[in-house]
Write a protein that binds this DNA or RNA. Structure first.
Lengths: 204, 204, 204, 204
DNA sequence: GATGAATGAGGTTTCATTCAT
DNA sequence: AATGAATGAAACCTCATTCAT
């Protein structure tokens, strides 16, 4: 009786539904009923898997990040050049498609909820840190390979991460002044700024 | 007779209280009772000045921005050099003191609430636009005065604004990795990047 | 300083407004604010003239009846023949014009409110009795004059009054089945039934 | 499994309670709490079955009529003579016992509420029409059987219905002048008026 | 006499959570 | 494992009434 997998599957089904609701309506407007309906189960069942709404919310926010990362795993191994890897990685985070936009919505909800909730603060710290580390790692790689300029890799990572977050917010909120094209432009400009002019091109 | 100031005063008293609550607990956790208590009036009175909680919230979010701007008005006229003005202006927005931090909290709440509320979206568009315009104006001034590098001033403004927003979020959420000092560092670095090297250096 | 008249006038202005609101929205939906607005005064003033809302309501209901009666005073002296007087009197009560319809609305509200309010019950008893007496009186006159059939005048009056009330209700509620023409038809039929065939016609 | 009856039963339990409250206190004084208490459930449960108080009220008013009719169904098949059927049917509606009185109270509340509420107006039109139809049917039967006088059956039905309504109102409001005996008297008199003199009299 | 800002009790409604089935 | 009926605390909002001016 390999039931554990059923449970895992059920949990994921609920978490996915929760994220969709959070993305559409926001954390505070999320109702257990909404999640249940979307997952096509009863509210009782939701509570069978998640003791309280709070538990459900936290698990959903964490799942949002994990799933988001998993979707980008391949990018990190696809490119040998760190600069290209950075560009591809950042590009993949610009809210172009619905999935990415939804993930950003949940992400933004997480930040703001964390402002008033120590537990979420810790969750945020953990997953945010993880993300920053990945960027830092790429930058270190790039510096080692001579394609990214020297300087404190953490400072550079912070710059990059901040820029992406800031741009995304303006984009998500729907500013007509911040189109996806503009975002791409700003990001590319930033990457150029922290890149070492490519040798071959310089030579030729 | 001649009591127009009382109403204005009362409204401001309520709005100030609302912003404090929003900053402390978040928009969704804000209770009309909380605001009333903080303003030392009855809930009935709150509703006497603001028909619905929604109206109150919107007015508070708008007031947060307006008041925030008013507090910085002097900065814009204090410096003749646009670069210094930009630096001072940006510095004044880094969440150092309690007032500024509170304003940022409310600001962040506004963004996320706007994700699901067309009215707030419009409000956000309006006040965000105003802010972006101010930065753009300073940059234009700087370019005219030869202290800021050439390039599309709007693109530069977007870069600056995004960076500040992104940094602030990380800071607000309480990341141990994003101290105020680090923020200052990143900001200064950015301003340096978009500044024309100063005369003395140019001479030598 | 003949102020009393001012007060009387003010009271009537308020009562008239109250009746209009009651007619339009019903007793329970009537707000002191509505009355004040319609009378173009403040709520404070309404309370200056009527201690409580309850007092105001009762006074309004009573006023509705009194004013309604006053408007028909002339009819009672206009006709020498009791049968004609009865016909004219009844006709004047059919809800044809807006004023009469409004009076009926208030009248109906009074009945239903009286179901649960002893004070209104008494008020109703008083003014209803007054109305019944008037009809009875006309019938007695008619019997004395030989134009109305014999029989307990009170029983006949009750029949007439009931019929009018019943018809009016159906009409007021807006039944498409109960037009004013139909009401008139039923009433005329009833009056014919209780009338003595006129001598001259019988002779000729 | 197979719990459909529970829901129906629960709904009826609530509707019955609502009608009782409406009869006792009136539509506007009815509180959801009152209904809940009387039905021995929580207010939450009331709202589980009826979204809003308005829905509850409407359903209750409709139920009042339906249940009222159901209680009289047997009368319509008991008598072969249409005149007797009419007499029995009308008699059964005179507010003698508590149940009938309560039903009339709710009935009266429906009328007056309908004055200001289009939905109730429609509801009233529907159920009132149904009632009028039943009376009309009996009269048609009586005319076919030669026990009721000729004439437009709808006109006669309107006369009958109006009389009953009018009498009931006076009775309900508690007029000392309108006892049940008097009502009976007036009704019998009316039925006599619209009846064909019985056979023996016709023969002699 | 008149005002209208201020009150606060009380009502409807929502929704996370429980628990018998 | 799953359900969904039932709960009840808590929130927003209304509005008659008061009272300083």
């Amino acid at each position: 009786m390999a039931r554990p997998s059923v449970e895992t599957q059920r949990r994921e089904q609920i978490l996915r539904a929760a994220c969709e609701v959070i993305s559409d309506k926001g954390i505070n407007a999320m109702r257990v009923t909404d999640v249940a309906k979307l997952a096509k189960i009863s509210t009782g069942s939701v509570h069978y898997y998640f003791e309280t709404k709070r538990d459900l919310t936290q698990a959903a926010l964490e799942w949002n990040f994990t799933a988001s990362l998993a979707r980008r795993e391949s990018i990190l191994t696809r490119y040998t050049n760190a600069r290209d890897r950075l560009q591809a990685f950042i590009d993949s985070y610009l809210p172009r498609d619905d999935d990415t936009t939804a993930a950003w919505h949940v992400w933004a909800e997480t930040w703001v909820a964390a402002l008033h909730d120590p537990d979420l603060r810790e969750l945020n710290e953990r997953i945010y840190g993880q993300w920053r580390s990945m960027i830092t790692e790429i930058i270190r790689d790039g510096q080692a390979g001579g394609v990214i300029i020297d300087g404190d890799p953490i400072l550079i990572a912070n710059t990059v991460v901040s820029m992406i977050d800031g741009l995304s917010i303006q984009s998500l909120v729907g500013s007509r002044h911040m189109t996806w094209a503009r975002m791409h432009e700003v990001c590319t400009h930033l990457i150029d700024t922290i890149s070492v002019p490519s040798g071959r091109e310089a030579i030729s």
